[in-house]
Write a protein that binds this DNA or RNA. Sequence first.
DNA 1: CTGACTGCAAAATCTTTGCAAAGAC
DNA 2: GTCTTTGCAAAGATTTTGCAGTCAG
Lengths: 146, 146
Amino acid sequence: MISYPILLEKFQTLLKENQLKFTKQREFVLKFLYENDEHFTPEEIYTLLKQKYPDINIGIATVYRTLALLEASQIVSSISFGTAGKKYELGLKKHHDHLICTKCGEIIEFLDETIEQQQKLIAKQFNFKMTDHAMKIVGLCKNCQD
Amino acid sequence: MISYPILLEKFQTLLKENQLKFTKQREFVLKFLYENDEHFTPEEIYTLLKQKYPDINIGIATVYRTLALLEASQIVSSISFGTAGKKYELGLKKHHDHLICTKCGEIIEFLDETIEQQQKLIAKQFNFKMTDHAMKIVGLCKNCQD
DNA sequence: CTGACTGCAAAATCTTTGCAAAGAC
DNA sequence: GTCTTTGCAAAGATTTTGCAGTCAG
């Protein structure tokens, strides 16, 4: 897994290349996602950041704007979650897919090479230039089956 | 593929079992999805229905309510489409997955047995009771690669 | 300094809800 | 008749935008 200083540098380079500025709000969002290896809604990121760092000045709009920026830069990725918006996670880890529990909302990650290979094959078959792919298995997790 | 009269009967039985009523609004939505074998947003379904049958009385709220009902009954299924809501399609055909073009928005369906099998296997591995699964391959379709 | 970024609040979307009237059974 | 469903408009929820002040480079 990539270390935080390296990730940060990557982000700063990317900003510079696009004449964008490096601000503490942007860093806070990045750092938050790095340190919390889960899936969050923009709202959650906003609330938890405020809670953890009561002194920082950040607005929900900035969280949205930053996430959009990070997603466009392929630094974070998002996953749609039912009717209720998207959840974001750091996107730099090895590609993986998700099991989503409809009852408790838990998201479990997994990686399956057979599926990865098969996806490439399918894209090729359809003359599709694949930029991303995602698989969700929806159901009840072990704990919620009672 | 299931014929419309049979689908309709299935729907009516389902309604009866749950002490729900069979209304023309509900039938219009069902019929629309049967006759238009594509993916639609609630808004699209509403607008197109109004356009095709200027005389019917139906509100957007009813479309939402009907789609929720149909989805809960597993008659239609939905697919999340970027930040902009969900699209619905009749869910009675054989399970299939989607290729989504990020430029023109086209959705291509495909079916791959290898992937279907693999998904079952994974759910089992994680002790997950799978109720649904979905795969999206996102990218540029043949026409949009220029 | 200059131009990008930010927070705020307002606006725009998208979806759900309350309610009185209409409709199914 | 009874109880569900409907359309409407209002309310909610979520996300985006305009703008004047702030900040990075």
